[in-house]
Design a protein around this nucleic acid. Structure first.
Lengths: 336, 336
DNA sequence: GTTTTTTACTTAAACGTTTTCGTAAATAAA
DNA sequence: TTTATTTACGAAAACGTTTAAGTAAAAAAC
C-alpha cells in the first residue's frame, strides 16, 4: 500500500518544517513567495491532498455546509440546491444534503448530528409538520443557520423568503377576475410562517374581491400521496369550489387526478393555480398556471448569506435582493 | 462558551479511562455490560456527540458516502437518491451529493477531492460527456466505487444497471406495432455503456421489425436546453420520422415543444416513447409513454452493494436482484 | 495448587493538521 | 551605533478520537 503524501512528506523533501508547509499551503503572509511556490509545486507533482479530518479537527473548520430539505424530488428544492452548490463551489465548500421527507423527527436527528462539528453551517427549509420552535431556537445558538423558503418565526434567525403574501394575493385576485366565486386554499404549510403569509394573501384577496372567506384546507400532517389525494377529493366534493389555490407543488398532480376522477372540467368548472416550479407545467392538460418562485436565485442568496455569516461579516439583510415570484397564467385558470 | 463534552469529560465523571469510554461507546466486547450502560447513560444525559473529525482521523472511517450524479433535478436521480439515503441511514452513514451538470471536468475534480479520505465510498452515475476511462480506472483502485445506471465499461468495476437493451427493444417494437415506419433514436449517452445497450436494443428491434436502420441522433455533448431543442428540431425536420425513442428524460420537454412549434400532431403524425420517471407523464398532453426505471430500487441496490464492499464482504453480484424497467404505454404512442 | 486463559480495564501512542509562541536574521527607526 | 520592528521560518502543543499493547484480577484448566 502506497504511503499517503502528507505535509510531513512535503516538509522532508523540501527540508523545511511542517509548520512552514502548512502555512504555505494556506497562503499565509508569514511565508515568502519563493517558499510558497516551492511548496505548491511539490504539492502538485506529488498530488498532495489535504486530509480533511485532520484539518477539521485542528481548525474547527469543515469546508462543508449542510442543506436540509423535505425532498430533492421537488423542482423548487432541486433548483435551490443548484444555486446553493454554485455558491458553495466558489467558496470551496462541500455540500451535504439531508432529506427529511417531512418527518420532523428526522429533521431533529439530522441537526443534532450536525452540531458536533460535521459542518460549518446549515441551510434549511423546514418540514411542514414541524413547528418545533424550541429545537430551532437552541440550534441557531449552536451553529450558523439560514432558513430559506420554509422558515420559522424566530427573532434573530436569518431567513430568505419570497413575496409569499403578494403572490398568493395576486393569484387569488387572478382567479377571481377569471370568474371564480368560490376559491379554496390548499394549505400545505399551516405551521410555518411561509404558509401563514400565503394564507393571508389569499384571505385578503378574497376580501378585496368581495368573496366569501373560507377556512383553508389543511393537508399538512401527512406525506402519503393517497391521503393527500383523499383530502383534496373531500375538499372538492364538500366545498364545490370553482377555484383552487394550491400552496405547494405536491398538490398539483393529485388535483389533476381528482378532477379527472370526478369528471370536473378544468378550467371550465374549476380553475387551478399552484405554487410550483414544475418544468412540465406548460405541457400539462390543461397547462398549469403557476406561481413560480425564483428557486435558483433563492439558493444562491441563502448560501451567500450563510457564507457572510461564516466569514463573520455583518449580514446586511437589507442589502439582500428582494426575491419575487412570478404568476404565470396558463390554461388551467383561463376564461373559457 | 460552554466547553464541549468529549470522551474525556465522560471518563473523568465516571472515573474510568478514556479508552474504556471509547470502547464502551463502540460497544466493544472488552467492556462489561455494566460499564457500557453507565457510559451510555452519561453520554445521553450530557448530550455527548462523537467528534466526527477526530474519529475519522484516527480510524480512517468517515461514516459518509458520496453520490455523484449529473443533476438532482431529474426524477430518476432524485428517486435514486431517496433509495440511497434510505440504505445509508440504516448503516448510519451520511450522504454527500455532488452534481456534475454533465461537466466531466467537475466530475474529475469531485472524485479527486474525495480520495483524500472525505468519504468511505462513492456511488456514481457518470456524465454523458465523460468517457474518461483512465481516470475511473485509477479511481476504483483508490476507493470503493459503485456505478449505477450510467456506467462505464471497466473490468472489476461494480455497476448496477437495468435491462436497458430489453426495454429499448421492447419500446421500439411497440412503436413499430403502432404503425411507425421510421423511428429515430435520440441518443443522450453515446459514450456510455448504458447508452450503447439502449441503442443496440433499438437497432435490433428495427431489424426484427423489418424497418430501416437509422443513425442515432447524438445529442450528447451539450447540456444547454436551447441546443438540445435545436438538435431535436433538426432531426425531426431532416429525418421526418413518425416515431421517436428518447434515451433520456431531458429530451421529453424539448420534444413536446418542437412538435408544437412544427405543428406536428402527436401521436397522429409522430409517436414518442421516452426513458423517464416524470411524475407528470400521465398528465401531459398527450400523456407520455415511458420506459420507467426502478429508480428507487436502483438506489437501494447500488447503496447496498457499496456497503457490502465497505464491510469487506464478498459482493455476490449474482445475488443482486435483476432490475427491470417498465414500458408504460400512454397516448403519446397510441394508435389514432 | 499451579498454570493458563479470560475478563475488564489502563496507558500511551498514534492520526495529519493548524496555530501559538519563540527566535534569528534582516531591515528600519532612533 | 543602538534599538525597534519586520520578515521568515521552526518547535511543539494541541484537536478528540481509536487502538495496539500491557496488566492485574478473576476464572478455568490442568
Amino acid at each position: 500500500m502506497k504511503r499517503n503524501v502528507t505535509v510531513k512528506t512535503l516538509a522532508e523533501q523540501l527540508n523545511i518544517s511542517i509548520a512552514t508547509v502548512s502555512k504555505a499551503l494556506s497562503d499565509s503572509h508569514e511565508i515568502s513567495a519563493e517558499t510558497k511556490q516551492r511548496v505548491l509545486d511539490l504539492a502538485r507533482t506529488l498530488n498532495y491532498e489535504r486530509n480533511p479530518a485532520a484539518s477539521n479537527l485542528r481548525s474547527h473548520r469543515t469546508s462543508t455546509i449542510a442543506v436540509i430539505i423535505p425532498d430533492v424530488a421537488n423542482n423548487f428544492f432541486s433548483l435551490a440546491i443548484k444555486g446553493i452548490e454554485e455558491i458553495a463551489r466558489t467558496h470551496n465548500h462541500h455540500v451535504l444534503i439531508y432529506q427529511t421527507h417531512e418527518d420532523s423527527a428526522a429533521e431533529i436527528a439530522f441537526t443534532n448530528s450536525l452540531i458536533s462539528g460535521r459542518v460549518d453551517g446549515i441551510l434549511i427549509s423546514v418540514t411542514r409538520s414541524a413547528g418545533n420552535l424550541a429545537h430551532f431556537q437552541s440550534l441557531i445558538r449552536q451553529i450558523p443557520v439560514v432558513f430559506f423558503d420554509r422558515s420559522i418565526e424566530i427573532p434573530d434567525a436569518f431567513s430568505i423568503t419570497t413575496d409569499d403574501y403578494e403572490s398568493a394575493y395576486q393569484a387569488t385576485r387572478h382567479l377571481a377576475e377569471k370568474g371564480c366565486r368560490k376559491i379554496i386554499f390548499l394549505q400545505g404549510l399551516d405551521r410555518l410562517a411561509t404558509g401563514q403569509r400565503r394564507l393571508r394573501g389569499y384571505l385578503d384577496a378574497l376580501n378585496d374581491s368581495g368573496l366569501e372567506q373560507l377556512q383553508p384546507v389543511a393537508l399538512a400532517a401527512n406525506t402519503d400521496p393517497q391521503l393527500i389525494r383523499d383530502g383534496i377529493r373531500q375538499a372538492i366534493i364538500g366545498e364545490k369550489p370553482d377555484g383552487v389555490l394550491s400552496s405547494i407543488e405536491e398538490f398539483v398532480v393529485p388535483c389533476y387526478y381528482v378532477c379527472r376522477e370526478l369528471g370536473i372540467d378544468m378550467p371550465g368548472a374549476l380553475k387551478l393555480v399552484s405554487f410550483s416550479n414544475l418544468p412540465t407545467a406548460p405541457l400539462l392538460h390543461p397547462a398549469l398556471s403557476t406561481i413560480t418562485q425564483p428557486a435558483f436565485e433563492m439558493g444562491r442568496v441563502a448560501a451567500s448569506c450563510l457564507f457572510q455569516i461564516l466569514h463573520k461579516r455583518e449580514v446586511d439583510l437589507l442589502s439582500l435582493p428582494g426575491l419575487h415570484s412570478q404568476l404565470i397564467e396558463r390554461e388551467s385558470s383561463a376564461l373559457v
